[in-house]
Amino acid sequence: MSGDLLFGVELAVSGLLVGVMYSLVALGFVLIFKSSGIFNFAQGAMTLFAALALVGFLPRLGMGVSILAVLAVMVALAFAVERVVLRPLVARPPLALFMATIGLGFFLEGLAQAIWGTQPKGLDIGIPDTPYVVGGLLLSRLDLAGAAAAGVLVLGLIVFFQKTTLGLGLRAVSDDHEAALSVGIPLGRAWAVTWAIAGVVAVVAGVLWGSRLGVQFSLSLVALKALPVLIIGGIESIPGAILAGLIVGAAERLAGGFIDPLVGGGVKDFSPYLLAMIFLIFRPYGLFGREIIERV
């Protein structure tokens, strides 16, 4: 392989690995949007909250127990959100719910920092940041581990939604929540479970991103990276979120490696948004935007 090509492949592969982590953040949005039609503005804050909680628990509990504790906190949070936010706002316009999630986001950011402080903290998950060498390519162990964790989570979610009764119920709720209620699917519990799953996704994303960027306030901005992913993939599509995350990751790295040196930098950062804009023009529903079924 020529040097340029090798460089390109290396960028693309590392981009794909980072992309998996973008997919993960986007996935949290997709899950909640599908089930309850809400664009959850608090998804980034949930990620920060999960990471801060983990760092807070670590010194006393050790890694394994801390992760379990954070998962428990996020599940409890989901049930509280259903009770305090979703239930009273049932059948209100989507905008009311959207605004409620903005409030929830600020609340979580404030609460997390009140409990665990505002100092940036490192999060060491015990994977050295030295590269693997695979067929002449340098691959970050952290990236590989992150991609593997995200992949396992996504597979687990797919099996859960396609093969379990609870998953079937959640898919029914996402199609038509009133009809789901009419056949006896408890709507409140379905929403709580969805938020709990989004909470679990936030934990995984928080750990992976936190170990890479450090655990600090800006972690909640990682959610902004999910926006172009959502536009490209379609906000209602799980496969869309995954594929679009990969595309955005690879595009970002390639733009950084090849275009930035020519123009003096900056393209890497806005390339995802540029890509999203192109999609908005030509495919506004995204790659896999939900098919709107119309019979004639």
Binding site: T165, L168, A172, D175, A179, S182, V183, G184, I185, R290
Partner: peptide, 19 residues
């Protein structure tokens, strides 16, 4: 009618037995 459009016919029937 309010069927779950994105679920198959059989999955729709199974949602009826959810409880």
């Amino acid at each position: 009618r309010r069927v779950f459009e994105h679920l198959t016919v059989e999955e729709n029937l199974l949602t009826g037995a959810y409880s």
